[in-house]
Amino acid sequence: MKTGERRYIRSQSSPGAAFALLVLILNFFLLTSFDAYAEQDVRGKAESLLKDATALFEEGSTDKAIGLAGEAVKADPGYSESYDRLGYMLLKAGKNDEAINAFEAALKINPQHRTSKTGKGLALLQKGDATGAEVVLKDALLLNPYPSMTHYALGLVYEKMNNYEQAVLQFKEGIRTFKSGKR
């Protein structure tokens, strides 16, 4: 085939191909937009449920809060924040193993989730596993750019171990990081 012929064929087939391409792009655009909207809708629902759950939790209705946070998890299983908050609520209810599962689920989605590691450490401490808690909380300190609360938790671990020298160091570090703005 000569170059001129090729050019002719291309120009001949061009309106149909362009149309097909346009339809394809439109379809893609519509589908991805729909997906994005659906995703946003799902995330929005989870966020709203989580907001209500947090309000209930702060009022002291822990069981109801756990129920709603569980619904938030179901509404958007890819949202790590729901698992994290659910973990803290379960922790308050004394359901340590369930809390650990929730924190681990949050960390699976977002390994950098800065409060989930601290939550897991607290759950281990509450279970009586101070050594396990120490390891997890030290790891959390590496992840956490706002470490005051993690230092506080680690201080609790050392108090439990009767290691007051280390406890003092951790609490002081918590205060220092808070004052320097690394809350």
């Binding site: 005051s148 609360m149 230092h151 506080y152 201080g155 609790l156 050392y158 108090e159 007051y164 020298e165 406890a167 003092v168 609490f171 002081k172 918590g174 205060i175 808070f178």
Partner: peptide, 24 residues
């Protein structure tokens, strides 16, 4: 307390201060 080597008491007070600062 820390200056007087009373570390248990010192730890309890640093903890209390941090709890108040973080509003725990």
């Amino acid at each position: 307390y820390e200056k007087n080597n009373m570390l248990k008491e010192s730890s309890a007070d640093y903890r209390k201060a941090l709890e108040l600062i973080l509003k725990i």
